[in-house]
Design a protein around this nucleic acid. Structure first.
Lengths: 230, 230
DNA sequence: TTGCAAATTTTGGTCATACCAAAAATACTT
DNA sequence: AAGTATTTTTGGTATGACCAAAATTTGCAA
């Protein structure tokens, strides 16, 4: 109707994905099979595959059969990823994004301080302990650092938050990855994590937020030290 | 090098867009021109256009010349839109999304209470006044209601927040649009807005957050009343 | 000259076919 | 049974062609 023959194919396939006919991890039918099934040309079949890929419903690596990828909120943020990548090239882009991260994590630690359950506390303590144990291993510290923050995103039990966390770490990875890793900095960051943890244990949302903001503001200073004004 | 000829074309064109050679609103060269310029087949030219469109750099309506669209954060959320749309069909999807909205707006009103400037206060008062003046006009109340919340997203001066607000209203519109509009409810919502405003004026973040959470929790109850458990 | 409608050109959407190279599948050898 | 060579499948790209919708030009009448 509306000019795009590929759209109907996209609709049909995404329907199969959501209804489970095509499960996570399955291979998409070959393009030549699609053209037979839907009575379309290969051009349209390829177009449909492209659209599905841009919507995150399938993962299409060059020269490989596209793989069905169950669409979670992660997929949504993945779809936004390429655009955000462009925006981060512009002055202020990284700062704007990091700023939202600060506000969100501030809200998350408040939430944690107010309503973290026993299990959440255990998870936080575990993550913190592992973080402390890897201060001298820069690569692993990087991982356990992220893991500690990840626990914060898990606490509300809302799958959107972990997806956001993954998006942040992915989008900001280019900057983060280039930052110099020093044991001294690790020690400072671990101390910050500990302060956040303490405030949560004391059920003091204001202190938790303050500690978190201080932590991320410090991290941002490091970014600026490395990259200058971006 | 690695398989996708279209990628180099995409890179070249996106470079032109970012460098301003192709400005916002310009028309993308015709496919047949692209193939000549880059020495590629029409297949690849079309592929490149598709990719650029999926990245939000150009807006391609069927049967129309693609238009350059300098991507903002709104474009990123637009790209995520189709996936989120699907997720909202699943049980709990709407709730999960609305939950994040509550947390974000709670953080925003805290921010507003702590650091809203004179201009922000004026904007809030204006929005609130217009909201109050339209209690008996359901459609306009709906608009001024959104406008009041929009001001909250504007206060931090970070372009990401207005984009998020637009995404929320777009994504949740299907539910919101079907809700019954009653002058009584308008009155309640206006009272909530006033309470939030008062707390901000008193520079009391806790009260502002409480008022906001109460307001949105109430709104959610209305949603459940209309749709049942979703 | 100007306004508008008809004719023409441009351009996006689709199809069919062909070739190549990388993957995947299969056959074969050790 | 394991590893290697061979065949088949499949995605990436190129050509060329046709149609219908847009955009442009042309031409005529007011």
């Amino acid at each position: 109707m509306t000019g795009r023959a590929a759209d109907s194919v996209v609709k049909a396939i995404s329907g199969r994905i959501h209804s489970g006919v095509l499960a996570d991890g399955d291979l998409l039918p070959a393009e030549r099979d699609l053209m037979e099934e839907f009575g379309i040309s290969r051009t349209v079949a390829r177009e449909a595959v492209r659209i599905l890929a841009s919507q995150g419903l399938i993962a299409a690596k060059p020269r490989h059969r596209p793989v069905i990828r169950k669409a979670g909120f992660e997929a949504a943020f993945d779809a936004a990823g390429s655009i955000v990548g462009n925006l981060l090239q512009h002055p202020g882009g990284v700062h704007n994004l990091f700023d939202t991260r600060i506000m969100l994590e501030a809200a998350l630690v408040r939430e944690a301080a107010l309503s973290a359950g026993k299990k959440d506390i255990v998870n936080l303590k575990t993550a913190l302990a592992e973080n402390g144990a890897t201060i001298d291993d820069n690569d692993r510290f990087y991982q356990t650092d992220q893991q500690f923050h990840a626990v914060l995103y898990d606490i509300p039990g809302n799958p959107v938050y972990p997806a956001i966390h993954r998006a942040y770490t992915t989008w900001l990875a280019p900057q983060w990855g280039q930052m110099p890793r020093l044991a001294d900095r690790n020690r400072i960051n671990f101390a910050s994590h500990t302060a956040i943890m303490d405030a949560i244990l004391l059920r003091d949302p204001d202190a938790a937020e303050a500690a978190l903001r201080s932590h991320l503001a410090d991290a941002w200073d490091q970014v600026r030290l490395t990259f200058g004004d971006i």
